[in-house]
Design a protein around this nucleic acid. Sequence first.
DNA 1: ATAGGGTTAG
Length: 687
Amino acid sequence: MLSKLPTSLPPHLALKFIKVYSNSGDLQRARHLFDKIPQPDLPTWTILISALTKHGRSLEAIQYYNDFRHKNCVEPDKLLLLSVAKACASLRDVMNAKRVHEDAIRFGFCSDVLLGNALIDMYGKCRCSEGARLVFEGMPFRDVISWTSMASCYVNCGLLREALGAFRKMGLNGERPNSVTVSSILPACTDLKDLKSGREVHGFVVRNGMGGNVFVSSALVNMYASCLSIRQAQLVFDSMSRRDTVSWNVLITAYFLNKECEKGLSVFGRMMSEGVGLNYASWNAVIGGCMQNGRTEKALEVLSRMQNSGFKPNQITITSVLPACTNLESLRGGKQIHGYIFRHWFFQDLTTTTALVFMYAKCGDLELSRRVFSMMTKRDTVSWNTMIIATSMHGNGEEALLLFREMVDSGVRPNSVTFTGVLSGCSHSRLVDEGLLIFDSMSRDHSVEPDADHHSCMVDVLSRAGRLEEAYEFIKKMPIEPTAGAWGALLGGCRVYKNVELGRIAANRLFEIESDNPGNYVLLSNILVSAKLWSEASETRKLMRDRGVTKNPGCSWIQVRNRVHTFVVGDKSNDQSDEIYRFLDYMGEKMRIAGYLPNTDFVLQDVDQEEKEEVLCNHSEKLAVAFGVLNLNGESSIRVFKNLRICGDCHNAIKFMAKIVGVKIIVRDSLRFHHFRDGLCSCQDFW
DNA sequence: ATAGGGTTAG
């Protein structure tokens, strides 16, 4: 068909054909025809560009608009600018948004309410409140839509107080808010947890009879759930005359946010039995809600029901369930989800990719974590933070510092989480001076005020480097009340550097502010035992018993094929327990020949030397490592996880084992990852 | 012409 058309149509005919093709949605042909016209006139440009925008082909619309500007022979009309403004809004394209605004001024459309409103909306979607305000303030006449768009823009930009201000001001300026205004403004109250303003808006809704609008009433449910209580939210929900899927979704989310999983699930059940249509957000609200409340199993169960109901997990579903692999440290499951993400092109999404980076890091594979991060084309504060935290967890402080520099250089603003990440990296790599410099630069260069966590990180930086007196001085000079984190860091340092005096001070503070944490009693007792202060050590353990505090049982686990195998000290319940102990015996001989000396400091009981060595050989981490080595299946590395800190003797023994067996052994304890390879550990024995 | 719900880091 196309080839039979004459190559150059007379202009009026070309316009007619482009119109026909555009209206029928055949934009390929419309473009084809358009491209052949040597000098299109204004109506032709306008028809094509507005058709492209209307059919969601915003990128092409903007390209043609830039062509149009380049040729510079015709002036744009209002309709053309309106279309391009819409295109910029849908792509959140600030750069071209500014061009449209410029043209509107240059060609004298500033006083037009219709175009002005479109420009405000465009800037709002682009999250550029300055632009929107310029347009808004330059308008000679403003209607409800101008005010509503301005308020929406403020909400989009996170300027919630300003949004409420606009709502209040519009009444004074003689414009009455409508239901759209109200449903735009209520999320501001919700996010601010501002019950007073929320009630004020609710009053307005009642006085003006807007309660029947589902947008408005659903927003009210959300507001009450966030500002007052789930009960009040339920009351508003019950009084609604009309409810749609979104209203139900709001209620479900509210219950999960309030940690009432069973109620959330039962609302979801009612939704199904009452025949309310479910959509993706409904499923995602339940799955995400379960995940947020630690109900991983339930989340996975709902996920499979979702799939059985004909909903394919979408990008948000996947991002919600990915932390299941992160928390279960299931590298296998995580890789499967990565495959799904790859096949469905979800990897373009920042949130999803960030969750992937974190999953790989927490599952012990920093290399894959880096690889995913390096492929990201756009990075925000959270994604940079995630990579920084990932490298810090693995003890690569230098790399964390480099990432931090790169982040700042690329113009992404660090927040308080960034600094917790960087500083903990410094503490794991003995970067004391660097840590101090970063800490000092926080408020000066980045306007982030150091909080209690940052101070604790600094105590950790100093303590881990053995500068215990300085760490103690730092605590004493802190402008805020030192938390358990700060004293805990000092106590940890005292354990490594065997400082009884400061250890006692730190522990005694911890026994007051964190009296139920068994770890503190155990740490002090360990310090006292290694100083041979047996009776004081047993007093500490007595104090712990008297207070009813019980030691957390240490346990280690490892995933082999599809199963997680868990070990406690002296465990003999594994199918392969006999082999494990035989293997450890055999290893023990080889290790001794290689120069390994058992470090019996780590045995608490006052027993004789031989017995102490016996006790050391059955620590859960050694059992899990042995099991991993026995079940290598051709892998060159194994990953073991432990709930408590790795024991010092185990740390030493695993170095020897990695060398003798010739594999990479990765152990994650409660504080960080240790990469054992060829007789050395990545933490440089600094843990 | 302007409107609501589901996702990532400590």
